[in-house]
Amino acid sequence: MQSKTLRDILVLLTIGAALFAGGYFLVHEISKSDYDLSYQVSMEQEEELGNLFKDLIWDQYPTIKDNYADSALQQIAKRLVSSIDSTEYRYQFTIIKSKDINAFTIPGGNIYVFSGLLELAETPEEVAAVLAHEIGHAEKRHVVTKLINEMSLSAVIAVLSGGDPNMITQMLQSVISNRFSRENEDEADKFALQLLEDARISPKSMARFFQKMNDKNLDYNEDLEFMMTHPHNNKRIDRARKYKTRNNFSPEPFSIDWEKVQKSLKSE
């Protein structure tokens, strides 16, 4: 009888283990299906979509080009992009003249940073952290996935084939709102921390900037755009603070005069 009991316990444990393994497989497949969803839009189509958005942004927002702040942004971006192992994007970084504290990515590897965010940052490393995070969204194809989820694949395809122009505006608003799922935010953060380390920029800069956003949250409610789209910030700050770099990691400072950046933004 004892051997039967033992056998029954083993059967029960095996069923339990199988259920758990099945659960893990299911969860893994669901998270993977989001990634697979983005592959229903090819890189060429994504670039095309990005160009449509770029034209709209060009019409709707004043941009800052060819001044010291812009060249500083390009210098930061260049360091980051050259540290990505391999990428299918030709990244472009643009400053939008606006007091809002925000940054967003549109399809095709086009990243926009609001001048309000650059004014808030105290070092180029903090801006690098934001850019690395946005690059993370691009590399993980979160923007395309979000558009498909919110607007449907057929709407994205319709826009590409010259469909309803109102739809493009609606899509752009969705992209600028920068609302990603918590999982997407975490994934972009993890990507950013690794990228910052690879680019010899201290990952702690990400914690510093997020902390600044948190502090700002307490004082200025009108400047919450970026914060509100990035919930569970404490957890993210903590993760960035605790991120363990390689033993031989030594950060390489940027040769950017940040005061000059701030001045050039104010003069615009």
Binding site: L19, F20, G22, G23, Y24, V27, H28, D186, K235, D238
Partner: peptide, 20 residues
Amino acid sequence: SDQYEATDIFWAYVVFAGVC
């Protein structure tokens, strides 16, 4: 807590608990 995250293992456990 700021220390813990909802990992795939957690969600797998939730599925496991639900099926049980």
